[in-house]
Write a protein that binds this DNA or RNA. Sequence first.
RNA 1: GCGAGAGUGGCGGAAUUGGCAGACGCACUAGACUUAGGAUCUAGCGGGCAACCGUGGGGGUUCGAGUCCCCCCUCUCGCACCA
Length: 825
Amino acid sequence: MEERYHPQKIEEKWQKIWEEKKTFRVTESSSRPKYYVLEMFPYPSGRIHMGHVRVYAIGDVLARYKRMRGYNVLHPMGWDAFGLPAENAAIERGVHPAKWTMENIAYMRDQLKKMGISYDWDREIATCDPEYYRWEQLIFIRMLERGLAYRKRSTVNWCPSCQTVLANEQVEGGRCWRCESEVTKRDIDGWFFKITAYAEELLDWCDRLIGWPERVVTMQKNWIGRSEGAEFDLPVVGRPDLKIRVFTTRPDTAFGMTYAVLAPEHPLVDRLVVEPGEQTEVERFRAEVLKQSEQERIAEDRPKRGLRLSARVVNPFNAVEIPLFIADYVLMSYGTGAIMAVPGEDQRDWDFAKAHGLDIIETVSRPSGWTGEAYTGDGIKINSGFLDGLTVAEAKRRATDWLVERGLGEAKINYRLRDWGISRQRYWGAPIPVIYCDACGMVPEKEENLPVVLPRDVQISGKGGSPLASHPTFVSVACPRCGGRARRETDTMDTFVESSWYFLRYCSPSYNGGMVERNAADYWMPVDQYIGGIEHAVLHLLYARFYTKVLRDLGLVKVDEPFKALLSQGMVVKDGAKMSKSKGNVVSDDVIRERYGADTGRLFELFAGPPEKDLEWSDQGVEGAYRFLTRVWRFVSQHREALAAPPSGWSEKQLSHELRNLRRLTHRTIKRVTEDIELRFHFNTAIAAIMELFNAMVAGAKEEAASSQEVSVIKEALESIIILLFPFVPHIASELWESLGQETPLEEIPWPTYSEEALEEENLLIVVQVDGRVRGRITVPADASSQFIEEEALADPKVKGFLAGKEIQKVIQVPRRLVNIVLEG
RNA sequence: GCGAGAGUGGCGGAAUUGGCAGACGCACUAGACUUAGGAUCUAGCGGGCAACCGUGGGGGUUCGAGUCCCCCCUCUCGCACCA
């Protein structure tokens, strides 16, 4: 063993061993319980840097730890390989997206291997592989048959920079989630997945995601946005053919309705316009609303703008005629796109009513001293006909019943969640397996023709739309039904579709009888621990939950939810910004490995803070991690011969105080590290505990002429340190282990257990407080009586000084910890 | 505005059920070894000369509060006219 620590050399050695022995390969035939740990797979955008490494290091600690705990651990890796950056590279550099992607994958795979992440590489997948997306196409057809996939023309989010449609979840604050361009609206035909059919179930199951961070669950709940209420019609005065459907969560307030509002783009508006000149005004108003930029719409205290129509409607509850408006504060995309306005109990309506001089009727009694504007709290109904005297909750029910009895309306639950628009007007994605025939209409591709392979021979210019649309043999096909001339769909699927099921494909990555082999999926699913960034709280994580439920209903899997537990790890931050290529603040993993080795890079990122928090990159912190590993290395290289002495027999009681203390610390550290990993994922404190033990052991090994007892206690400490370090820094741990003459590789060594006997204390350090302030410390035998402890505490010279001349009121004892002497006054 | 989370040394961060605040690491200071040190080792390291004071601020509960309760401030994240 060399005296100096050369990480590159030993890292290469152990990676080669793991690769050749296929150490991390797993199968379903194991008597061990299964554990599936998964990090969100990367988009192969170029190179991995230290900002990316964190999530893989976290996953690797769990994978290696769980293996040592006796689990059959599935820990796979693959590539989210379709997407726009590949196309952009093609436009900028003229390299084909497939080539660019595969080259990146090759490079990044090598990087992950060099970081020593323990993947079963035999299960590697890439979503751009036709053998992968063919199953997605098959499921698309199944979804089509069940009405879960459908095509419609609608107003959608359009990213002018990416030149494609975005789903609602992919718009963040009015901007594209990927390129941050301002999103515009466009009317376009496109494909949708009916995620709203699962809104109720997705919401209900939120409460059963007990292994998920609270905030992610809350974000999903808010995104789904359930609200309960009623829908009913407002007849238009003098127009028996027309009525306006409204949705409200407060049917109890219907008697306070003083006007009604339609969204400006509501389809009924044009039919309601009758007076000359009115149409012009409506057009002008619409144009004004539409041209509002995102900025203006977000602006605080934005005045609500509206236009009064000549038509009037009737409140069915009291037959009162009320005015009708179009206004910008009512959205076509929610509810029915029309509302009854109750200024007394809704602040938005109150603002609008004030601005337009409309009546305000209060229908709920205000608490005394109420000085606010609209009142949304509870109370007793007033001015509300048959609802008077009821509470709000009672009145809601009664009003809804009233509507239902008369056939005027119904109870209704609305969701904020919209169907998932999956059409992308881009090339580098999975083709949607559908054909349009003049005679037969839309026809799905025949199943035996799957996969519909994405053609490689295209020219990507970035202009004139998707190159698929001008690819003659791809577009021009025979109708699968009538054989006549037909056109193939040229939109591709949102790449979030691929990532909605990749975790299933890992269960049986080369199965060619379907998306997933039933037995393998039943064995491995669900993912026991999923790890990834918070940015996917309502994107990928919602889609994957939805897709899993669809697959369950199609009979492919039996799980209801894909991810049992979720760990949302924080970002790696440098110079105040997320480490990313575009910010220009990346730290290359190559440089870190060259200078310090992969183990140091891993150790630093795991030690610098708990995984869920953001992590500030620190060059000095890396130095510190390296220094620790160097110290461990040096200790072993200097002491390995002395430690080679055969263990001698000894018993706990024979050991000196110092040795018992060290042994106690060894076992306490085993306990702490185990609990920190298992219960809390607090790798930082686990590592700190190992460092503490190491420091104590070094101090204990100072003495010359070691006794055989000393050798065995130090050896136990050192071996424990090496085993406990293995999940964090596997290469150096393996090398040190081997250098101590151990023949069984570390990954086959069971995780250590602690001995209760070793944990037992001989003496206890008791803190003595006077009036709650620490005044002294006493050491007592562990079995000392409370009376004895009290006497010792009162007799302590330092404590005595504070007691002089005072009367003791009482003495409080916390067993094994503390005595508090409370004085009079 | 609504929802969630967070505020602890010069810095990253520790503190099972309320029980020694600042573990571990970084930075810093002094010393040792050395031709040299940005290597290594040893010691120190919240503030204050001290009594004491210290976990964003103010109140409270308690023998005892970073931890529990109330009010306020600041920051981060998410949603943002959702009827």
